[in-house]
């Protein structure tokens, strides 16, 4: 046993010597560095065997680092990374979940181009995103600025404006559908009695053209508290000296906002816009619960992409087709995120 080890050490040391020779002869710095790293690792191996240890100090350190990551990463790899890769592959296949998979190429995407329900879902999702992102941003920023002032019971107001975010969708959408009930709800009752809107003209909040507006308003109401907190954190990072200097220069409240707050918050705004866009594209439950009625079916006027992904997968079992829609969703999110990153980079440069 010991002889074997001695032989091993001898061989490793010989390797190291050869490498050393190569390093001396090498001129290219990058290759040189690689060789040096290789020699070091060979030498380390030799010392490890010499000292009768199972693992070198470096290897031990790495193992410890990996042991910290492993519990999360193994779960993450199995339940997230693998499905992500499968999703890409599945978009180019035809499969019903039980029979044999067949290769479809771009057929699924070609069929999507002619699918009118998909067209409606795509259009509605985009309108929803375009409406919700700026409105939520403005509302959240305004709210954060107000709640960053020195006012009484500030904690109370902050807590209250976070309530809608915390509340479960099922519960809170059922309240909204009662408050905006077309014939019985208090909102339309007010329109009828106080504003004198004739009975037949009362808005039907959850169908037709209005439904997207209702979805947008609801989302702004529900999620502004969340982005408010992010903005609040951003506002607290702005130094008070900037405002003092602005005050000395005679800046009014608007000028202070325009030339101090807004530019200082740029990275926060960037983060908020990216997160908002990603979150808006995956809208599903809000639409189903507000516009879906008892059975949760969405018509052309209220359908969204994720609804159609779900339907194709779990009602029709067209897994490939459903994954193709998912890919479109992903591509849109990706493109918009990249554009935003580019824009942010350009501003920073």
């Amino acid at each position: 046993m010991n002889e074997k080890k001695a032989a091993q050490v001898k061989k490793l040391e010989a390797d190291a010597a050869i490498l050393m020779q190569l390093i001396r002869e090498e001129n290219d710095i990058q290759t040189k560095q690689k060789l040096i790293a290789k020699r070091d690792s060979v030498q380390r191996k030799a010392t490890t065997i010499k000292n009768n240890r199972l693992l070198s100090r470096e290897a031990k350190r790495e193992l410890i680092a990996y042991s910290f990551i492993a519990p999360n990463f193994i779960g993450f790899a199995i339940f997230t990374l693998v499905p992500v890769l499968l999703a890409f592959a599945l978009a180019f296949m035809n499969w019903d979940g039980s029979n044999a998979i067949t290769f479809a190429g771009f057929e699924n995407f070609k069929r999507l181009a002619k699918d009118t329900f998909f067209g409606a879902a795509l259009k509605n999702t985009i309108i929803y995103v375009i409406g919700t992102v700026p409105l939520t941003l403005i509302a959240a920023l305004a709210l954060a600025i107000v709640l960053n002032q020195k006012i009484k019971a500030r904690g109370f107001f902050r807590t209250v404006s976070f309530f809608p975010y915390v509340a479960s969708l099922v519960a809170i959408t059922s309240v909204w559908s009662m408050i905006f009930h077309p014939s019985k709800g208090p909102v339309n009752y007010l329109l009828l009695t106080v504003f004198g809107v004739p009975q037949q003209d009362l808005p039907k909040w959850f169908s037709g053209n209005l439904v997207l507006l209702t979805l947008i308003l609801f989302s702004v109401w529900k999620y502004m508290g969340y982005y408010m907190v992010i903005y609040l954190a951003g506002l607290q990072g702005i130094s008070a000296e900037l405002y003092e200097a602005g005050g000395l220069d005679g800046a009014n409240a608007w000028q202070k906002f325009r030339y101090i707050t807004w530019p200082q918050l740029r990275s926060t705004t960037f983060f908020v816009v990216v997160m908002l866009t990603i979150n808006c594209f995956k809208v599903y439950d809000i639409a189903v619960m507000l516009a879906g009625g008892g059975d949760g079916k969405l018509s052309n006027s209220a359908t969204v992409l994720v609804y159609y992904i779900y339907q194709n997968a779990f009602n029709y079992w067209k897994l490939g087709y459903s994954s193709a829609i998912a890919m479109i969703l992903f591509l849109m999110v990706l493109v918009i995120t990249i554009i935003q990153f580019r824009y942010e980079k350009k501003l920073n440069a």
Partner: peptide, 28 residues
């Protein structure tokens, strides 16, 4: 801590943050 492949592993996490769960819920 320092270890090999740290950046690649972390990149795997970051890349999926921008990916809505709804995109891979079916294969999952």
């Amino acid at each position: 801590l320092e270890f090999r492949n740290k950046n690649i592993l972390f990149l795997a996490y970051i890349a999926t943050i921008a990916m809505p769960w709804q995109v891979y819920m079916v294969p999952q």
